[in-house]
Computed example of a mutant assay.
Amino acid sequence: MGRLAELMKGYHGIEVKEDRERLLMDDLHAIMDVNKTMNLTRILSEEGGIVLHLEDSLTGLPYIGDAPEGLYADLGTGGGFPGIPLCIMTGRKTLLVDSVKKKVAALDGVAGNLGLGDLIDVYAGRIEDLAKERKGQFSVLTARALSSLPSLMELASPLLKKGGRLICYKAQPTGEEIENALGIQEIVGLRLECDQTFRLSDDSTRRIFVFEKTGAPRIKLPRRIGLAQKDPLRPRS
């Protein structure tokens, strides 16, 4: 059992088989190699990558397992975390979404070299444009350190099919952020299903919010590009 498998089993009760661990480590090493010429991650050490990329990514595994079968997309994927690790562990058809074309092209190459080309596709563009092109096609979405909860809920809603799940990885969300998120659930057609706080093996705190798509939003989504971040929805008084 390697270092990653030990951490996942000991801290999170998640089993990582040897072949999967090997592929996950190959992914980390490939991303670190690309990072020498392109800014994909600020984490430069293998140990840091194991904890803050792989361990952190895999904490969402139980929640993606609870989602309906079907397409999975990682929004604002950056260096491919948690998208590629969750694809490796679940075997789901996966779309890595990022607006930076060079990053997306690099991830496409990494996926191909890992033998995941049949499972992983990439999208270089804005989430709002993807929502117009592939409305209601996704069963599960993840977003890790991307934006505020209300913004993520608004961006995710038109992409999700009914019953689909949005899994948000957060570090230290404010009380106001959470209150606003809970207050717009009916507006965007989502409902909070899970809110769990836990610690990684380096003792840093993480919090995962899982929202389920319950029905059509009460407003037309997506709104104009950028509005979800610049002017996020707020609870109606």
Rank of each mutant, 00 (worst) to 15 (best):
G79R: 07
G80A: 02
G80D: 02
F81T: 08
P82S: 03
P82K: 06
P82N: 04
G83E: 01
G83D: 01
G83L: 05
P85T: 01
P85I: 01
L86N: 10
L86F: 14
L86A: 06
C87S: 15
C87N: 09
C87G: 09
C87K: 02
C87Q: 02
I88H: 05
I88V: 15
M89L: 13
M89S: 12
M89W: 08
M89Q: 08
T90W: 11
T90V: 14
T90Y: 13
T90R: 13
T90C: 13
T90S: 14
G91A: 15
G91N: 12
G91I: 14
G91H: 12
G91S: 12
R92G: 13
K93N: 13
K93E: 14
K93G: 10
K93D: 14
T94H: 10
T94P: 03
T94E: 09
L95D: 06
L96K: 04
L96S: 06
V97E: 05
V97H: 05
V97I: 10
D98A: 09
D98M: 05
S99I: 14
S99A: 15
V100D: 09
V100E: 06
V100I: 15
K101G: 13
K101S: 12
K101Q: 10
K101R: 13
K101H: 11
K101I: 12
K102R: 11
K102W: 07
K102P: 02
K102N: 12
K103V: 04
K103T: 06
K103A: 09
V104I: 15
V104K: 05
V104A: 06
V104Q: 07
V104Y: 12
V104S: 06
A105E: 11
A105Q: 13
A106V: 08
A106S: 11
A106R: 13
A106N: 04
L107C: 09
L107Y: 03
L107K: 03
L107P: 09
D108Y: 12
D108V: 07
G109T: 02
G109I: 01
G109S: 08
G109A: 02
G109F: 02
G109W: 04
G109E: 05
V110D: 00
V110C: 03
V110A: 00
V110T: 02
A111L: 00
G112D: 04
G112M: 02
G112T: 04
G112A: 03
G112E: 04
N113S: 15
N113K: 15
N113I: 03
N113V: 03
N113E: 14
L114F: 00
L114A: 02
L114G: 02
L114Y: 00
L114Q: 01
G115P: 04
G115T: 00
G115D: 01
G115L: 02
L116C: 06
L116T: 00
L116M: 11
L116G: 01
L116K: 00
L116W: 00
G117K: 15
G117E: 06
G117S: 13
G117Y: 06
D118W: 08
D118G: 11
D118A: 12
L119V: 06
L119K: 15
L119D: 07
D121Y: 12
V122C: 10
V122D: 11
V122G: 07
V122L: 07
Y123A: 05
Y123W: 05
Y123D: 03
A124Q: 08
A124W: 07
A124M: 10
A124D: 10
A124K: 07
G125T: 08
G125Y: 04
G125I: 08
